[in-house]
């Protein structure tokens, strides 16, 4: 394999399959990532709240979910989501796999985000909560007016990193051909048998995506710091 033929192949592949990579692949990768992180932020917050609550059952359930999600490979979670969830929720069986895959991505992201939120809250000096409580404010008010606003400054940058992680993690969803970038790779590779060329293309695209995202996040963080 010479460099010349490698580059020619890439140009030929892109000429024929650019839509598969740029439209479908990147489109679905971003869509899945955004839904996963947005859902993860929502349910992750609920997870974090439940875990801090005094109800032991909730605490145990959430801890179990978080431990299992963090302690098992994403691929395995996807298999379970696609093949076991429909046994529990029959409605899923008639829907395309992307629904089950999305649910798994959201649960996965929720587990990580709940840990991000938990550590973000714990990183706030406990003296802040004590001072608020000592003035007679309720736990609720103290949390909302004092602790959470400070925790968010720790949480948001980590949430950005989670988003970048999820962009890469979605690649495993290609096991079920949901259409994201890695699926594009599988499809085009399956048609052309030009593995390295296709890998190179999706590699460049993944890098471009995460690079742009991390630069954007860094700029946004700087702005936030300047306003603090």
């Amino acid at each position: 394999m010479t460099l010349g033929s490698f580059l020619t192949n890439i140009i030929n592949i892109m000429a024929k399959y650019w839509q598969v990579f740029l439209l479908r692949g990147i489109g679905y990768t971003l869509l899945l990532s955004i839904i996963a992180v947005a859902g993860g932020a929502f349910f992750g917050s609920i997870f974090a709240l439940l875990k801090r609550s005094r109800i032991v059952v909730f605490k145990a359930i959430i801890s179990a979910i978080v431990s299992v999600v963090r302690g098992t490979p994403m691929l395995l979670q996807l298999y379970i989501g696609v093949f076991v969830f429909p046994m529990i929720i029959p409605k899923l069986a008639s829907l395309p796999y992307i629904y089950s895959v999305t649910i798994v991505l959201i649960i996965n992201s929720s587990a990580y985000v709940s840990e991000i939120i938990r550590s973000g809250i714990e990183a706030v000096d406990p003296g802040q909560m004590e001072a608020a409580r000592s003035l007679g404010l309720t736990q609720h008010t103290a949390m909302l007016s004092i602790v959470l606003p400070q925790a968010i400054k720790n949480i948001l940058p980590a949430l950005g990193n989670e988003f970048i992680m999820v962009v890469k993690e979605t690649s495993l969803a290609s096991t079920f051909f949901v259409g994201e970038l890695m699926t594009s790779y599988l499809l085009v590779k399956g048609n052309t048998y030009l593995t390295m060329e296709c890998l190179f293309i999706v590699g460049v695209l993944y890098f471009a995506l995460t690079f742009i995202l991390s630069k954007g996040l860094a700029a946004w963080e700087r702005r936030m710091k300047a306003h603090a």
């Binding site: 696609v82 093949f83 796999y97 290609s174 079920f176 051909f177 599988l186």
Partner: peptide, 15 residues
């Protein structure tokens, strides 16, 4: 559509 391995799992689980 799914990966070759997943095809077998899909049949096995009745999916």
């Amino acid at each position: 559509p799914m990966s070759f391995d997943a095809c077998q799992a899909a049949v096995q689980t009745g999916n």
